[in-house]
Amino acid sequence: MESTEKILEIKHLKKEFDNTPVLNDISLDIHKGEVVVVLGPSGCGKSTLLRCINGLEGIQEGEILLNGDLISNQKKSMHLVRQHIGMVFQSYDLFPHMTVLDNILLGPKKAQKRKKEEAAAEAEELLKRIGLYEKKKAYPRQLSGGQKQRVAIVRALCMHPKVMLFDEVTAALDPEMVREVLDVMLELAREGSTMVIVTHEMQFARAIADRIIFLDEGNIVEESGPEEFFTNPKTERAKQFLNIFDFDSVHHGSNK
């Protein structure tokens, strides 16, 4: 599924907030069809990295390229760049005054100036695939959290982005709704979408990732395949991080 065509190139990125460094010298290439999962403790800069990629934050040093074109710190044309980068956030971020269908069509119609009929046909097709076609005329408040997030994914998808960024899209969901959202993402991965995913769902990360990036205090500490990362992490820091997710059994002693 992977190819050598680079979609995103991040070169020596440095990001500071009020002179406090948050990302130090991050370099990372993302290839077409690749699924990269970014892991790391809270506050290590995962969200900031994604926000730098789609220009919600400016950067202090380094550069970011999309298909070979410089996109970092391009204030004037950033809205054009963002049409090629889909992003889904943790908070349910649908537009509350629009129906599901209008939410999805706003970008294609207004940003990309596509024909309404053509975009609507595609949006309806996508809604059918995530099982929410019947909800196309519903307003966001009439949907569950999981349904809202799936619509948010479709909204990003309908723009035909070259890469999709996911920032802890299941973190605010009730546990029973996490699965339906993750399934949509797994489906996208199977189809060969290029994705950068920040998540705290370790099982999911292991299943979906082609490559794991482990971030700590603004540095890439470890970069490896998922099996290797989860079974045999190279760094002490990653081992500690993974241990947080293991629990020793109370009743039957340790099962290791």
């Binding site: 963002r82 889909g86 908070s91 940003a111």
Partner: peptide
């Protein structure tokens, strides 16, 4: 704030 950011994320201009 995330209403502004979601708008940006689908490629709208500030005016839009």
């Amino acid at each position: 704030k995330h209403q502004y950011e979601s708008g940006k994320a689908i490629g709208l201009t500030g005016f839009q």
